[in-house]
Amino acid sequence: MEFLYYPGCTLKNKAKDLDLYARKSAEALGVTLTEVPEWQCCGGVYPLGRDEIATKLSSVRTLMAARDAGCDLVTVCAACHNVVKQINHDMACDEYVRTRVNNYLAPDVPYDGSVNVLHLLEVLRDRVGFDAIREKVVSPLTGRKLGAYYGCLLLRPSSVLAFDDPENPTVIEDLLKALGAEPVYYAERNECCGGYAGIADPEVPEKRAAAVLSNAKARGAEALVTACPLCYYNLKKHAAGTGVGVVYFTELLAGALGVK
């Protein structure tokens, strides 16, 4: 199973664990991740305005690299996934965007959104399979009560991301079950952590993180499992004193597979 892998800027810096354990777990599961050569930053948030063209170019370059390699493109960072997947959708479905982007980049073969963009969680669920993962677990997370934290970027807008049920997602919970842990279902798991607005007003992530942490804790979670470096940062920053930990899903996976 071979994929082109787009790590993005944060996974090369502040979220090195997210990247490192993704690679190690993939290897242990027989999944080959080849890094996109000379990749560029996706920009962190999807440029929602239709007439935003320049801000969509870097993702299209990544997508074209995958097309040329004849591979599905795999992401791990929730933000990169959201941005690249939505821009891919624009290239497939929005004539206005597609024309302007192709005019600007002038590639030999115009890009039309043909690449399949997958998050690593989707690869684990749909390609590897949770049963196969369960078989490879060497140190199961038995007895650990863990709450999945999806945030917004993996799920919304569901009409484009088609990742999971946006109001009742289960992919991380199902992964946790495969690793031997007991997933904790709580309603705040698909609500925003406050995102980038901490720059404008630090109270926003503080309030949001508190709501998420208190809900998860009340339902019995010892730690929250995420795929997003910004969620990780916002939650971790405000988790002090709650007793609730925050961990990347790749780190848990690598631990359970014995490759950490």
Binding site: C9, G44, L230
Partner: peptide
């Protein structure tokens, strides 16, 4: 602070 936050905020 993750890079993601800064690039997002600049965007």
């Amino acid at each position: 602070t993750p890079q993601q936050l800064l690039v997002s905020a600049f965007r």
